[in-house]
């Protein structure tokens, strides 16, 4: 064997290091770019394009797929907060949410509040749907709840109202900020959008958002606020939280959660 055909360990090491260094530079570049104004505005444009395209593709009446009862998952996975620790919530839970009232306020003609029983007496819908988490997993469950569109019709949003903001009881990960979310009126008025109080035929468990959680079946899971306490109709959500329309939106996730 000729010496020159043997791999030169020095050269090999150099090449490996050069490749590693090149890769590291590329990655560091991507990480720095991620925070640059130029990239952030490109990301925002792409997200706006996604929202526009998906809205154009989907009529406001297109329903999310509903599944047969045989597809219901044995346990519905609970994510995020599974038991809000603050004393107000614990007191409500201790009393079976009999003192809980959902107040609906903001840009509405007839602001008022609803007890859990009042919600249960309103027009309801039962649906077996797939919950898609932004993390990638899916879980199928049967939900029963008050149709949000019917509730909104009762309080009569004013002409200026554009979004429904859902204020929640839980401090996610025990932090200082309460969870909140928002839907525009198209998603809020969708026939499958519910204030759900039942999961798989039983009262909604605390782990899944008791006494009510939002179901917005054409969006990802982080939109579907749990432990909902108050609805606020607004023209803009700029002054709420950090101004991006939701707890996770304030932490870099897109307001449009259709993908």
């Amino acid at each position: 064997m000729n010496d020159s055909t043997k791999p030169d360990p020095g050269r090999r090491r150099f090449l490996a290091r050069a490749a590693t260094a090149g890769g590291a530079l590329f990655l560091a570049g991507c990480d720095r770019l991620s925070r640059s104004d130029g990239m952030v505005s490109l990301f925002d444009s792409a997200s706006a394009l996604t929202q526009t395209a998906q809205r154009a593709l989907t009529s406001r009446h297109d329903l999310a797929r509903e599944y047969p009862a045989s597809e219901i998952a044995a346990t519905f996975r609970a994510n995020g907060t599974t038991n809000p620790q603050n004393s107000d919530y614990q007191a409500l839970a201790a009393n079976g949410f009999r003192d809980w009232r959902l107040s609906v306020e903001g840009l509405v003609e007839l602001p008022r509040s609803f007890s859990l029983d009042e919600l249960k007496r309103m027009s309801s819908r039962t649906q077996i749907t797939r919950h898609d988490c932004v993390e990638g997993w899916s879980c199928i469950g049967q939900w029963k709840g008050a149709v949000l569109g019917d509730l909104l019709a009762q309080v009569r949003p004013t002409a200026k109202a554009r979004y429904v903001v859902f204020h929640c009881a839980d401090n996610t990960y025990g932090g200082p900020d309460k969870y909140y979310e928002s839907l525009d009126l198209i998603e809020a008025m969708h026939p499958q959008t519910l204030l759900a109080y039942e999961l798989n035929g039983a009262d909604l468990p605390i782990a899944n958002g008791a006494p009510i959680r939002l179901r917005a079946e054409r969006q990802l899971g982080y939109k579907m606020a749990k432990y909902v306490m108050r609805l606020e109709l607004v023209e803009s959500f700029e002054d709420i939280g950090r101004g991006n329309g939701g707890y996770w939106e304030d932490r870099g996730y897109n307001w449009w959660a259709g993908i």
């Binding site: 890769g23 590291a24 991507c30 990480d31 991620s34 792409a46 394009l49 993390e135 932490r251 996730y253």
Partner: peptide, 22 residues
Amino acid sequence: WATIPGPRWLAMGRQWHFLFGW
């Protein structure tokens, strides 16, 4: 070394993925 961004950052991974998907 195999992910963009390098550290665990789902929201930003999604931003890169959808921009380049477009």
